[in-house]
């Protein structure tokens, strides 16, 4: 019979083995590339010369560093907005949707099965000079000529990212709300707490861990985001991830791209650690 210790071994071994082999090893390769001299897509067989040239080049290019800082700020903004807007969705699913919650939740996720590229093309069509929105505005006599709506700007990137994150951002919050003991809310009501007071004193504190998970789940990948800026950001909305992507695809300068990715990884983790310290995770979870 399997004891708790044996069970633990079974629980921990597969994830660690899988991630060590298919995440840590590739990540180590990237780290090694970032410390490699030269540029280009150097094959694994070619001589490997250690150097910190790539980091020196990055440090010597203020535009890259500024963009990295800006991308962190954008990611924080997107994560805050997505968490706030996902919260009511999660609340609706947890407390109002009843037995249909699974259906309602799935309905939110299914549109993502359609290529993001195609969906963005459809949005561009609607927002373009000949699109539905402009037609409506001119029909109502509000505008004389088509106006450039939303597209090709940094706000467009933020709005679009929040829009695509909301359904996923709702998941951890919803999961956390499912665990709220309904008796606690009833008890609060019996003690004379009004709806708002019950919400603020019981629901919010108990769902906070889910909201935190959401925040980081959105924040972390958004720092390196490059698909949305490329599709709707235009010249002004470019993010740090677009430059990394450029060094890996347009330029095949893998060493410099690796150094930029490693720098971003370290900075992102630093922000996460500071954030966790600030909210004092242990107190939230207990």
């Amino acid at each position: 019979m399997l004891g708790r210790r044996g069970t633990l071994r079974f629980l921990v071994t597969p994830p660690v083995a899988w991630l060590a082999l298919f995440f840590i090893v590739p990540l180590a390769l990237i780290a090694a590339f970032s410390l490699r001299a030269g540029s280009g897509a150097v094959g694994p067989d070619e001589p490997w010369l250690a150097s910190v040239d790539q980091y020196a080049e990055l440090a010597g290019t203020p535009a890259f560093l500024r963009l990295l800082g800006l991308s962190v700020l954008v990611a924080i903004g997107v994560a805050v907005l997505a968490t706030l807007l996902a919260y009511p969705i999660a609340y609706f699913l947890a407390f109002r949707a009843g037995r249909r919650a699974s259906l309602y939740l799935t309905l939110l996720l299914v549109p993502f099965a359609v290529s993001y590229l195609l969906r963005v093309m459809a949005w561009k069509l609607m927002l373009g000079p000949e699109g539905g929105v402009n037609s409506l505005l001119s029909f109502l006599g509000l505008t004389d000529e088509p106006i450039q709506l939303l597209l090709y700007s940094r706000p467009a990137v933020i709005i679009t990212l929040v829009y695509v994150w909301i359904p996923f951002a709702a998941l951890p919050i919803y999961a956390a709300m499912q665990r709220i003991d309904r008796h606690q809310l009833e008890a609060a009501a019996d003690l004379g707490a009004g709806p708002w007071s019950r919400f603020w004193r019981v629901t919010v504190p108990l769902s906070l861990p889910g909201a935190l998970v959401t925040f980081f789940m959105v924040f972390i990948p958004t720092v390196g985001e490059y698909v949305t800026p490329a599709l709707v950001g235009g010249t002004d909305g470019i993010m740090y991830g677009n430059i990394i992507q450029g060094f890996f695809t347009r330029s095949a300068n893998w060493p410099l791209g690796s150094a930029m990715a490693m720098t971003m990884l370290v900075l992102t983790l630093a922000v996460v650690l500071v954030g966790l310290r600030a909210v004092n995770l242990r107190r939230v979870l207990s």
Partner: peptide, 17 residues
Amino acid sequence: EEQREAWTAMWERVQAN
């Protein structure tokens, strides 16, 4: 190769600016 690297790096800096 040198030219290509210089040009592509230049372009990434333009984008980041």
